[in-house]
């Protein structure tokens, strides 16, 4: 608790400042106060938590799962085959220079207003940090470690399982923690472009009604969801990787 005190105090200070500024402006459609947002979340709890949050979380989860499979696959293949690495690495980097907001409407054209256009936006944003971080993690093992295992008679597959994979786990968890907020962002962004449900869609609907607190309410829910999922992943990471500082 003591460790988190500076963050809690800073957050509380910013909320108080926000409350004061919002009260001074006194125009909820421009800047609603934190208390107005809290009240709005409570009022809209039913659609927010039973319809829109699960919809966004489903897109987030699917996007993240596909990104993990794609990212891990690409990282492993690039680590194993240098030619593939040389061929793919620049392409992967290039995908990140494309503005997602510009290309996302294409996904709606291709895949329609259903869930998969949003999932694709989420994947496009999240597979990059997973691929690159894991690839760097796999590459980070020292040559002397690999050579020692070779002298023991281990195959490339055994060296991967016993050395490279465990050594890359810290990088993998860092990538996942980075990818979670991005995945949620991608899902919400996709929903903004066209959807029947989801926090992004809900936020856009509230905007058309000039309901400032209503726009902020799903944003707050999105942020809380991201923090909760990252906290869960961090807890798993702490349990699994007790040796992070030793490599």
């Amino acid at each position: 608790m003591k460790k988190h005190l500076p963050a809690i105090l800073t957050g509380a200070g910013l909320l108080i400042l926000w409350q004061i500024i919002a009260m001074c402006i006194n125009a909820a459609y421009i800047l609603p106060s934190p208390t107005q947002i809290a009240v709005k979340i409570w009022e809209l709890r039913d659609p927010l938590f039973t319809v829109h949050t699960p919809a966004t979380m489903l897109v987030t989860l699917l996007g993240l799962m596909i990104s993990v499979v794609l990212g891990v696959g690409l990282a492993v293949i690039m680590e194993k085959f240098e030619t593939v690495e040389r061929a793919l690495y620049p392409v992967i980097v290039t995908t990140q220079t494309i503005p997602v907001t510009a290309i996302a409407p294409l996904f709606v054209l291709w895949l329609g207003y259903g869930i998969w256009s949003k999932v694709l936006v989420s994947v496009l944003i999240t597979f990059f940090p997973i691929t690159i971080s894991l690839h760097d993690g796999l590459k980070s093992t020292k040559r002397e470690n690999e050579e020692l295992l070779k002298t023991m008679g281990m195959s490339s597959a055994a060296i991967f399982i016993k050395l490279k994979f465990p050594a890359a786990l810290p990088s993998f968890f860092s990538a996942i923690k980075m990818a979670i907020p991005l995945s949620i962002l991608g899902a919400a962004m996709g929903e903004w472009l066209g959807a029947q449900s989801g926090l992004g869609y809900f936020s856009k609907r509230m905007m058309t009604q000039l309901d400032g607190a209503g726009v902020f309410a799903p944003v707050v829910v999105l942020a809380v969801c991201a923090m909760l999922v990252v906290a869960v992943i961090s807890a798993i990471e702490r349990k699994l990787i007790t040796w992070r500082k030793e490599i």
Binding site: K142, N145, E147, I247
Partner: peptide, 10 residues
């Protein structure tokens, strides 16, 4: 047996 112990921290 190499110069460094090269023990796996995990």
């Amino acid at each position: 047996m190499p110069q460094k112990d090269l023990l796996m921290p995990w």
